[in-house]
Simulated assay, not measured.
Amino acid sequence: MWIYAGTMAQLPLDELTAVIARIQGLLPTEEKVTTAIRLLARAAKESVPGTIGAGVSLIDGRGRRTSSGYTDTIVSQADTVQYEYGEGPCLTAWASERPALVTDLNVEQRWPRWRNGIAGLPVLAVVSAPLLAGKVSLGALKLYAAAPDTYDHGSAALLQLFAAPAATLISHIQANEAPHRMTAELQASLYTRDLVNRATGVVMERMGLRQEDAVRFLIRQAPEEKTSLQQVSERVVAGTPASGT
């Protein structure tokens, strides 16, 4: 059985099913989200002839929009301009929760700042599909092409087939990793606090300083030694004096 989508080459449904099954089969506890995205992006790129790059836009751990699992640097370059100006086909697909199709950037009127920003890049066609998990839009999957009319509505429909299982997988991975990430960050924070407290006590004893003055001393040492407060404290606790002690 085959899919026919205008300018898009024929793609066996069995092959598409196999790719999706491989992505869905990744266990959240064993595979990172970037691994799944990379598999998906590579398969999506190979499924549409003329595509020069594929990737996914997501929110990273610091709440910033970022490109993940992209197959070629052109994706990161074109995406970065979207994030900088807050406009572009991928951000539109993400926000509207509907596919965004650009058949020819030469005649496209939307996103003027983004279009001007990528004028030097070999990008003339784009198709992007949102990553929807339930009622939540997690990001967008996109394909870039160097020739106009590479993509049509059939391409957008195919991309949605890739996007659906990817969104489900990403949502599960994020849900499973979030508690572990929070626990790790909390443990690191508690470790640093305890370490600084112990280093403060050592400095107070060695230099006869009050607690607040000992803390200020440690804080000053970090930039002077071009290191972190944690590393300064580790050396003090280990018995290696910080500069000036």
Rank of each mutant, 00 (worst) to 15 (best):
R64I: 07
W111S: 08
K142L: 14
Y151V: 00
P148Y: 00
I118A: 12
R62V: 03
E84D: 14
N106T: 11
S155K: 03
L158R: 05
D60S: 11
Q109P: 06
A125M: 03
S76P: 02
G134S: 10
D152F: 05
E108R: 05
A119K: 10
S76V: 10
A164S: 14
L158K: 01
A146H: 14
L159K: 03
D152I: 01
A129M: 06
L121M: 11
G63A: 08
W111L: 09
A156R: 03
Y144W: 12
A146Q: 13
P99A: 06
V102T: 02
L101C: 00
P112Q: 12
K142P: 00
R110V: 03
Y85N: 14
L91E: 09
P122S: 06
D152N: 08
W114H: 06
R98Q: 15
L101M: 02
K135G: 11
P112Y: 10
Y151F: 15
N106H: 12
L121E: 02
P130W: 09
A157D: 11
I74E: 04
G134Y: 11
L138Q: 04
D149K: 11
V75D: 05
D152K: 00
C90Q: 14
Y151N: 00
D72N: 14
G139M: 06
R64A: 13
P130H: 04
R113Q: 15
L101K: 02
A146C: 10
L143Q: 01
Q77L: 13
G154S: 06
T73R: 11
R110W: 07
V107K: 07
Y144C: 01
I74K: 02
D79Y: 06
S155N: 09
N106L: 11
G139W: 09
A164Y: 15
T150S: 07
K135E: 15
D149A: 04
A78R: 06
